[in-house]
Computed example of a mutant assay.
Amino acid sequence: MTGERDDADPLIGHVHGRFQPFHDGHLAYCEWAAGECDELIVGITNADPSHVAAEAADPDRDDPRNNPFRYHERHRMVTAALSSADLGVPVRVLPFPINRPSLWVQYAPANAVHLLRVLEEWHEVKAARLRDHGRAVHTIEAERTVSGTAIREAMAADHERGDGADSGWRGPFRIPSPPWSTISTASPASDRCTAIERRWRRRRRRNGDQYPGDTPAATDPHTSNRSSGAWIRPASVRRNRPASAPSTTR
Rank of each mutant, 00 (worst) to 15 (best):
T2P: 13
E4Q: 12
D7G: 13
L11C: 03
L11Y: 06
V15L: 08
R18L: 07
F19Q: 02
P21A: 03
H23Y: 06
G25Y: 02
H26Y: 08
C30F: 01
W32E: 04
W32G: 01
A33H: 01
G35Y: 04
E36S: 10
E36R: 01
E36H: 10
D38I: 03
E39A: 14
G43D: 09
T45H: 04
S50I: 06
A54W: 13
D58R: 03
R61S: 10
D63V: 11
P64D: 02
P68G: 06
F69K: 07
R70I: 10
R70W: 06
R74V: 07
R74K: 06
R76C: 05
R76V: 07
M77A: 09
T79M: 15
A80I: 13
S84L: 14
S84E: 14
P90H: 11
V91L: 04
R92S: 08
V93R: 02
V93T: 05
L94I: 05
P95H: 06
R100K: 11
S102P: 01
W104T: 00
P109M: 10
P109A: 03
A110K: 07
L115T: 00
L116R: 00
L116N: 00
K126D: 05
A127V: 09
R135I: 04
A136N: 00
A136F: 03
I140L: 00
E141W: 08
A142S: 04
E143K: 15
R144C: 03
R144A: 10
R144E: 09
S147A: 08
T149H: 04
A150D: 09
A150L: 07
E153L: 12
E153D: 13
M155L: 11
H159D: 07
H159V: 12
G162P: 02
G164S: 04
D166L: 02
S167V: 12
W169N: 05
G171T: 05
P172T: 03
I175R: 08
P176T: 08
S177H: 13
I183L: 09
T185Q: 03
T185E: 05
S187R: 02
S190G: 08
C193H: 13
A195F: 00
E197D: 05
R199L: 15
R199P: 01
R201H: 10
R203E: 11
R205H: 02
Q210T: 11
P212C: 15
G213H: 09
G213W: 07
G213P: 01
D214Y: 07
T215I: 13
P216S: 04
A217C: 13
A217Y: 03
T219M: 14
D220E: 10
P221E: 15
H222Y: 09
H222E: 09
N225R: 14
N225P: 15
N225F: 15
G229P: 04
G229T: 11
S236E: 14
S236T: 09
R241Q: 08
A245V: 06
A245M: 14
P246G: 11
T248M: 14
